[in-house]
């Protein structure tokens, strides 16, 4: 009897695993990259809140947020972007297949994001005005990539 139960449980687990793999082959990858985007948005919430005057400028907190942003940008997330994990095949994703297309500029966009995050990391702790000045390029880099490679709103 216990053997039968274990076998049934194992079979059901295997079946569930198989079903998940078939229904959403890149579920984990997509969840992970969306998680990284949300993490960046949280860091930008700290920096942007100070830029807008919603929260008082605090050099240490601004530096921490900018450090975190840069860390998230330099993180090796390449394994989260396998070919085929685009919106056409995966409704949970908003990534356009153009990311993987011949002649894609995704590498340039990633470099621009790294440059903007590096500039923010140098500016955020130096004062409110430098932080404000660095917001535009970071937003520009985010938007530039979204404009080209994310499903339009």
């Amino acid at each position: 009897m216990p053997r039968l139960l274990i076998a049934a449980a194992a079979a059901s687990m295997a079946f569930t695993g198989l079903a998940t793999a078939q229904d959403a082959p890149f579920k984990m990858e997509i969840a992970a990259r969306q998680g990284i985007m949300a993490y960046r948005a949280i860091q930008m919430g700290t920096l942007g809140g100070m830029a807008k005057g919603e929260i008082p400028y605090d050099a240490a907190a601004a530096q921490k947020a900018a450090d975190n942003l840069l860390a998230s940008v330099t993180l090796d997330a390449s394994m989260l972007w396998p070919p085929g994990s685009d919106n056409a095949a995966n409704p949970d994703s908003t990534a356009l297949a153009a990311i993987w297309a011949e002649g894609s500029t995704i590498g340039d966009k990633a470099k621009a994001m790294a440059d903007a995050a590096t500039a923010m990391q140098a500016a955020a702790g130096a004062g409110l005005d430098p932080l404000k000045a660095a917001m535009g390029p970071v937003g520009g880099a985010c938007g530039d990539c979204h404009k080209a490679f994310r499903v339009p709103d």
Binding site: A41, D144, D153
Partner: peptide, 26 residues
């Protein structure tokens, strides 16, 4: 302040970025 930030950096209050033609407007 949200509107000004959006028209400056493109960040929405949720710190998503403007999409579509609005990205060009910004």
């Amino acid at each position: 302040a949200d509107i000004v930030e959006y028209l400056t950096s493109g960040f929405t209050p949720e710190y998503d970025s403007a999409g579509g033609h609005m990205a060009l407007v910004i």
